[in-house]
Simulated assay, not measured.
Amino acid sequence: MLEEQMVRLLTRENIYMSLLTLSYNSLSWKDTTNCHRTASMICWALLRQVMGGNLLPEAVTWFLTSVLRGLQIHGQHEVCYIALSQLAMLIYENLRPRYMELRMVMAQIPNISLEALGQYDERLMDPNAQKVGEKRRKDQFKKLIAGAKALCQQFRKEVHIRNLPSLFKKPKQEKDLIDSSEPLGLAALF
């Protein structure tokens, strides 16, 4: 009886880990719709199920790295950016107190302010710190990961068009209708 329960438990954990691996891998596929749906509906729901157990630190860093990789690939799409940044924030805020390795992953983001990361981390880790509203937390986290440019924008060359000279245009000849010796008529006006 006990063996049966252990087998069911191990099988259940294996299924969750397989689904987690598949869903977090799919964030970096070249499919924007899939990325958005997976990030907004599946990834956090699955991770929340196994979060209470003992996860390996390598697995936790891989989850956050997969989300950041998804941001790099799909970050130019606003819908994906919102879903992925929300997922990254949930992973960091919920798993950071138990896993110090997540700070090292965040520190590897290009152009991240280590001072701002330290302040964010300090506020997150201090139980006596003043609680900040969710919108402000999201904005602070988005500022932290702002250095992670989308892959399509990393090597984009800025185009600067200088002011071009105006085209040569012949000036219209002005006819002085009053000094003209021609008879004034309706045809002369046009």
Results as ranks from 00 to 15, higher is better:
Lys30Pro: 08
Glu13Gln: 14
Pro171Phe: 11
Asp31Met: 00
Phe63Met: 11
Leu9Phe: 14
Lys157Thr: 02
Val105Tyr: 00
Ile178Ser: 07
Phe155Trp: 10
Lys138Val: 05
Tyr16Thr: 08
His160Ser: 07
Lys143Cys: 07
Ala150Asn: 01
Leu10Cys: 13
Ser66Arg: 09
Glu101Cys: 07
Leu167Arg: 10
Asn54Asp: 10
Phe190Pro: 05
Ala188Arg: 15
Ala187Glu: 15
Lys30Ile: 06
Pro57Val: 08
Leu64Gln: 01
His36Leu: 06
Leu114Met: 02
Asp179Gly: 14
Gln119Lys: 13
Leu2Cys: 12
Gln108His: 09
Lys175Phe: 13
Gln119Arg: 15
Glu78His: 15
Ile161Ala: 08
Leu114Gly: 01
Pro110Gln: 00
Ser26Pro: 01
Asn111Phe: 11
Ser180Ile: 02
Glu174Gln: 14
Lys149Cys: 02
Leu9Cys: 06
Pro165Thr: 02
Thr32Cys: 08
Trp62Gln: 09
Pro97Lys: 09
Pro127Thr: 03
Lys30Glu: 06
Asp179Gln: 15
Pro57Lys: 06
Gly70Arg: 09
Gln153Pro: 02
His36Arg: 11
Ser181Gln: 13
Gln153Asn: 06
Ile178Leu: 09
Lys143Arg: 14
Met17Tyr: 10
Tyr16Pro: 04
Leu71Asp: 04
Gln108Val: 00
Ile15Leu: 11
Gln5Val: 09
Leu9Pro: 05
Arg162Gln: 07
Trp62Thr: 06
Phe190Cys: 07
Thr61Pro: 01
Met41Glu: 13
Gln49Ala: 11
Leu95Gln: 03
Gln130His: 12
Cys35Arg: 01
Thr38Arg: 01
Arg103Trp: 05
Pro183Met: 13
Trp62Cys: 04
Gln49Glu: 12
Leu20Tyr: 05
Arg12Asn: 11
Tyr24Cys: 02
Pro57Trp: 06
Leu84Thr: 04
Ala88Thr: 05
Ile42Gln: 05
Glu174Pro: 06
Arg103Met: 11
Pro183Ala: 13
Tyr92Asn: 01
Ala107Glu: 12
His160Met: 04
Ile112Glu: 03
Gln86Gly: 12
Asn34Pro: 03
Pro127Ala: 01
Leu9Val: 06
His160Thr: 07
Leu189Val: 03
Cys43Pro: 00
Ile109Glu: 00
Arg96Met: 05
Gly75Gln: 07
Asn54His: 12
Glu3Lys: 14
Arg156Gln: 07
Ser66Ile: 08
Arg136Thr: 08
Gln76Arg: 15
Gly118Thr: 04
Glu3Met: 10
Glu13Trp: 14
Leu9Asp: 10
Gln153Glu: 08
Glu13Arg: 15
Pro183Tyr: 14
Ala146Lys: 01
Asn128Ala: 14
Ser18Trp: 13
His77Phe: 15
Cys35Asp: 01
Tyr99Lys: 00
Phe63Tyr: 10
Ile73Glu: 09
Leu184Lys: 15
Ala188Thr: 13
Phe141Gln: 00
Gly133Ile: 03
Asp31Glu: 03
Glu122Arg: 13
Cys35Ser: 03
Ile178His: 08
Gln173Phe: 12
Asp126Thr: 05
